[in-house]
Design a protein around this nucleic acid. Structure first.
Lengths: 236, 236
DNA sequence: GGGACACTTCGGTGAACGCCGAAGTGTCCG
DNA sequence: CGGACACTTCGGCGTTCACCGAAGTGTCCC
């Protein structure tokens, strides 16, 4: 296996795509699960549009992003859930070092809103995500002590709650995603995504600002209390 | 969040450590779970000792590797199981592209031995790892359909098999690790590591050559057949 | 003590890469 | 049709970084 291991070359090539600060900022921004335009990302990252255009070219060519052209706009989003998962895993790996205190009051406000509740690509995170995950676990719907899997009761709960789970495809039904503010795992995978999209569709929570932060509504408090015995008022 | 997102900087810094082909080859080599010396890695990668020394310095400073100095040797190994996990996840992410046919007969022989059975950091992989995982699942000891977790019967099985599971610590008991030859998940986490070290200790399987490949012994065939109903002879 | 050995430090070289602004392409809309 | 707009391509600049060999440090063993 001397010199030029194809696996090493592939690993290095993939890591190199993430190894640039501007590209990393793009990937993190795209974890909000929504498609961004090239211009929005350029402003977000503080670089020229031409610079960002080249970065997007590399990320798309490398298979990390998927693009969709609409008129004069170029929308990009993570190519698939696995990409988002790898980025999130990698990012949470270094969370200890990223624990820098917020500078301004405005950032502090945004940060605490993000800590309260946010989306993590396509599922719920922050204290809201943890609270839901813990409630599922306490009710015996999710098993965390021997791994991370829904129980049979959990499967039924999704059915009766009217949240369909697409069990085709290779994506795991339940997966642990390390929460970078709470430092504990929250629910990801098919079930996490279904729960989050249901919550947004039913307006249990709504997005606030342009970031990933979400806030629980009155209807959401009632629903989460009825279905999971969750004191969502504590998340205000 | 304009310009200089500390999270993006951290993510990019971490990815940059993996983004060099020589460092990537080192990390992949160290997934065999054993400590290598700087010289061994230099020969493995085909670079000068001085070059490799600098790479090791960066990987250790970056927290990816832990080092242990013994006399004139410098032994390195992954800093913890999470590092090995991230590297393995990232590597399996690009496995499709790495599917290049082996060139020489010697490489082909080594490749098929690796495909038959190998260690993946501290647990079993390859057809052997998949066979064990599937046997555990078929016997109702491991649940894969709703996530990835041991069942209560599985917990008892480890107890009666005399394989202790250390349930302190934050490392999950059971975790799915995507097998890059089989393209399916095998058992990792505390349970996977305990099973693998038990198998090596009891000589159910032994390492062959200097790589990660392992081969099932006669005693291993008997034990795996008795405990899991596994036809290990098929793995010869 | 002295030589073999493993690793590290240092200076220098060449290539890769991120960045920008300017110019170009394609789309939208009045 | 023509101007505003979003994005892309191009040339050039400066920095970073992997690499090597030579020289240096520390360890082992005869």
């Amino acid at each position: 296996m001397n010199r030029k291991d194809p696996r090493a070359a592939g690993l290095a090539r993939l890591a190199a795509l993430i190894a640039d600060e501007t590209r990393a900022a793009c990937l993190l921004a795209l974890l909000d699960g929504r498609a961004w335009t090239a211009g929005e990302l350029a402003r977000h990252c503080g670089v020229a549009a031409s610079t960002l255009s080249e970065h997007l070219g590399k990320l798309v060519a490398g298979g990390l992003l998927a693009e969709e052209r609409q008129g004069r706009h170029r929308y990009v989003r993570p190519a698939d859930a696995r990409v988002a998962q790898v980025v999130e895993d990698l990012a949470s790996q270094i969370a200890p070092g990223a624990a820098e205190p917020p500078r301004t009051l405005r950032q502090s406000g945004a940060g605490s809103a993000m800590a309260r509740g946010r989306t993590c690509y396509d599922h719920l995170a922050g204290r809201l995500g943890i609270a839901v995950t813990d409630a599922l676990t306490a009710r015996g719907l999710l098993r965390q002590d021997t791994g991370f899997a829904l129980t049979d009761a959990g499967l039924r709960w999704f059915g009766t709650a009217g949240i369909p789970l697409d069990r085709r495809g290779r994506r795991p039904l339940a997966r642990a995603c390390l929460d970078w503010t709470e430092r504990r795992p929250h629910l990801a995978g098919v079930a996490g995504a279904a729960l989050c999209s249901h919550a947004l569709r039913e307006q249990w929570c709504v997005r606030i600002g342009s970031e990933r932060a979400v806030k629980v509504t009155d209807a959401g408090e009632r629903a989460l209390s009825a279905l999971l015995g969750l004191d969502a008022a504590a998340l205000r």
